[in-house]
Design a protein around this nucleic acid. Sequence first.
DNA 1: GATAAATAGTTGACTTAGTCAACTAGTGTT
DNA 2: AACACTAGTTGACTAAGTCAACTATTTATC
Lengths: 152, 152
Amino acid sequence: MNSKAIEEFRSFNRFYTSVIGLLDKHILNSSYTLAEVRILYELYHGKDVTASDLVERLSIDKGYLSRVLLQFAKRKFLTRERSQADTRVVLINLTQAGKKEFEVLNKSSNDQIKEILRKLSGKDLDLLLASMSQIKTILKQKNNYEKPDQRR
Amino acid sequence: MNSKAIEEFRSFNRFYTSVIGLLDKHILNSSYTLAEVRILYELYHGKDVTASDLVERLSIDKGYLSRVLLQFAKRKFLTRERSQADTRVVLINLTQAGKKEFEVLNKSSNDQIKEILRKLSGKDLDLLLASMSQIKTILKQKNNYEKPDQRR
DNA sequence: GATAAATAGTTGACTTAGTCAACTAGTGTT
DNA sequence: AACACTAGTTGACTAAGTCAACTATTTATC
């Protein structure tokens, strides 16, 4: 099979790993774990999110998650209330403080990316976004990256 | 500024993070750390590599690296000899066993990617690779992802 | 040419993120 | 009612990575 293609694919992966690494490193200066940021992201973008939802979406250990959520609760970033329908599940929602916290992180990430994009010409920016969209649609159609394997 | 662009960029990053995560998870089944695999990769693709080289290229802690290299040396995956020119530096090279070890890992990764690419039509494959190359050239020109900040 | 400053790599001590398994409490199934 | 199953918590642990101090050597400065 086309080993050139494989090598190019892997070359891109290495390259993009370092891109993501750079962006992540930036966020990590904000004294939050990557996992924590992702959790905040999910909570910010959903309502009545459950721990199981997060476990599934983020492929994170539920024990670990439980502790992270406990920390967030202590810091008043979120509220947890038992579901009426099923009292085993806890519905999680960000408080105003939690939303604020996420927004600060989010803005900082946006600013960093803005800085990167600002350096590009309009044409390059268009090309870049088109290429990204292209890759997403091609890889999404056949594979299921969205839902990684279940975690305990 | 164009906040749509930022959101698309970030959306791609999230998506590709999960792609890479999936690929990495695969390698991680091989009882090697990601860092270890990268180290093997660098050693395989270069000769007389030094610890400092690796620290710079992989943005890895030199203490941690030192221990990983020690393990590899114990397992006879590599040789370390003092440089004549500068006796502080140690020149690292993979042994046959080390090369073999990397090749096994490498083949396993290749097979996994082959599996992904196999599902694509020839046209999609071309588009995919073209998009990847596009992204690389656009992002590389203005930013320096290749050389992350120095580590101690 | 001696002394200071810098660099390569090692070591020890430690922290933190994440894992694993066992457990409680509640729900669905027969 | 008994059984299996799911949601979430807790305790015990480990691997990965960090940080700082140290040795040995090289380079720069006076």
